[in-house]
Every structure is written in C-alpha cells, then in structure tokens.
Amino acid sequence: MNSTLKSLLVSLLLVATFTACGPDALYDLSEDTFQLRDSDSTLVNFPADFKGDVSLITFIYTNCPDVCPAITANMTNIQRKLDDTTGINFIEISFDPERDSPSVLKEYRDLYGLNEQFTMLTSHPNDSDLLLDKLDIVAEKTIIDSLGYDSTNYAMRHSNTLYLMGRQGYIRAEYPAHRVTSEHVKDDINYLRSE
C-alpha cells in the first residue's frame, strides 16, 4: 500500500470518527448496554437493541398526572406529524422503577393508546441511576403533605427532557419534552436519517 493511499485511509477514518461523535454528540452510548424491561417484561438491551434506527427517548413516571402525560402527548403528536415513521423508535423510560413495573407501564400505554412503535422501559430499582446519571436525568422523590407519605406515595421533581439518538447510539439533540414543536424535531430526525 503506497503512502498516498495510507494517508487517504487515515483521513477517511478521522472524518468518519468525527462525524459520528464530534461536536453534535451530546452523549455517547455507543459502547454502553443497560438492561431494561419493556411493558411485556421482555429484556431489552438499551441502546443496542435500537441501533440502526433513529430514536426519540424521554423519561417519565406513571404516577405523574400532569407533565408526564403531556410529554407522552407530545411524543404522539410528533409521531402523527411525521410523514414516514419507518425506522423511528419512540421510547419512554421510567425513572420510578419502584412503582413502574412492566405491568404498570403496560397499563399506561393502553390508557394512552400508544402503538407498537412506542417502547416503554423500566429497570431494576438498583440499576436505574446508572442510565439516568449517564444522561444527566434528574429524578428526586418529593413529598406533598396533603397526599400523606409512605413508601409508595410520593411525587417527583424531574427533568423534562427529550433526546434524539442517532443510528449508532449517540445522543445528538435535546429538547424540552412537553413543548418542543413537532416541526423542530421532524427536521432533526430527517437530518439524522440522511446521514
């Protein structure tokens, strides 16, 4: 192999590397695997099982009566307004695994009529912080006196975040989850699809 060809290959490799994890990548999950459960209790390797697709990822808890359903509504709005949803995953991850078992998530997805493109994920309570910390998602229990308090009755202060993940497991964009416009997300999804 002559030196010109070697230089060309090295240059291409560098370009490929910077394209994948350059300034556009907010978080790199390409080498990570988090074991989660979906609403059918099936084991899911996140994000490995979603690589090759573009994914919208948000974080909720099902005991949340106001903001989290608004986030879910925004996810379905975005889905509805996309001309073509082929190769796009809509993922909602619970940051309250103590209460959000797979069956609870199933109930939530049924209540809100989420279709098969939606994946609801939860984890073992001891494991959830690993993923949340990696993605800078805040989720803290709070107490509302009038509701009383026991181990199963609490509210949460939480991030209001929607991430867009590219095909290789890099988080490429972040939005305010319950109020980002579908047009904005749509443009970014189309950009990632064209890469």
Binding site: D66, T142, D145, S146, A155, N160
Partner: peptide
Amino acid sequence: VELHESIKHDDGTTSMQP
C-alpha cells in the same frame, strides 16, 4: 381532589405542589 401546580425550576426540572 386537590388543586396542584406544576412548577418549572431554574435547572430545567419540573415538580408539583399544592
């Protein structure tokens, strides 16, 4: 039934209070 309010904090997080 209680009247609650969702609050947005400076750090971007959201919580709820009566």
